[in-house]
Nucleic acid binder design. Sequence first.
DNA 1: TCATTTATGCGACATTATTGCAATAACGAA
DNA 2: TTCGTTATTGCAATAATGTCGCATAAATGA
Lengths: 140, 140
Amino acid sequence: MTEGKEKRISGLLRENGIRATKGRVEVLELFLKAGRPLAQMQIMDMLGTKLDRASVYRILNAFAEAGIIHMAYVDGRHRVYELPDKCSGRNCHPHFSCRNCGMTACLEGFKISFKGALGKGFVAERQKVLIEGLCPNCRE
Amino acid sequence: MTEGKEKRISGLLRENGIRATKGRVEVLELFLKAGRPLAQMQIMDMLGTKLDRASVYRILNAFAEAGIIHMAYVDGRHRVYELPDKCSGRNCHPHFSCRNCGMTACLEGFKISFKGALGKGFVAERQKVLIEGLCPNCRE
DNA sequence: TCATTTATGCGACATTATTGCAATAACGAA
DNA sequence: TTCGTTATTGCAATAATGTCGCATAAATGA
């Protein structure tokens, strides 16, 4: 990582009111580079032994609390996080998950309205949409 | 449970190629009575000590494999199952989950088309839609 | 640089789910 | 109905994911 990039990411963290530690910069860098949703396990795999398991969980929680990332969806037992730049507060875009290789992707340009879906007295706050299937690579 | 009902449920199980054991009949009975998605914990609560935890997990897996139920969605750490009678293979109806009391409900009469959502080469097989919010009881 | 505050690493623990194995129950055939 | 085969159950042990407390280390502001 270049020095300039690290400074930019550190600034991003401080802007959001949390300290810019080495581990946090590395994790945020991963999210920025990936451009797709990530789960704790994938982050651990990419970082090797640079960070403790507990630290990764705490970093993800800190990021989510600060609004730097948010939980996109749950895949099996894995919580998958992403940068919120493509989502407004109530209306998160859908995600795709490949049932063969586990690859995930954000689906843009695809809005869902849930107007009229709920009965009387219900209040909708968030929607989570996950489409499962096969990605181009796994499609034999 | 009346004798007739038990026989009917046993038949349902055998039709689907699995043995009709006491535990399985009780669990399927719960799903039929509930008319809403259920998680393992709720089933344990309703059955008390009649069945072992491991057995409930195995029953849910056996049911899912046999197509008697399917996993509707994941709520926090809980996998929530339901009878598939309201879903066609590819197009599962959405669900609602109350963030306050955890109550869940199926949303019917609300179809989502994901045509055009995926890029070239992707194959969509299933969609999972979860709307989170407040139910009438927990509203304010 | 120093003092204060916050984050990290480590180990222990909590929760959810799965597995191996012996005992038991279900089912089909005689 | 009874018997033998095969699948299922209960129990205990184990795995996988996530959290917590605490001492140490690092980041920030003065």
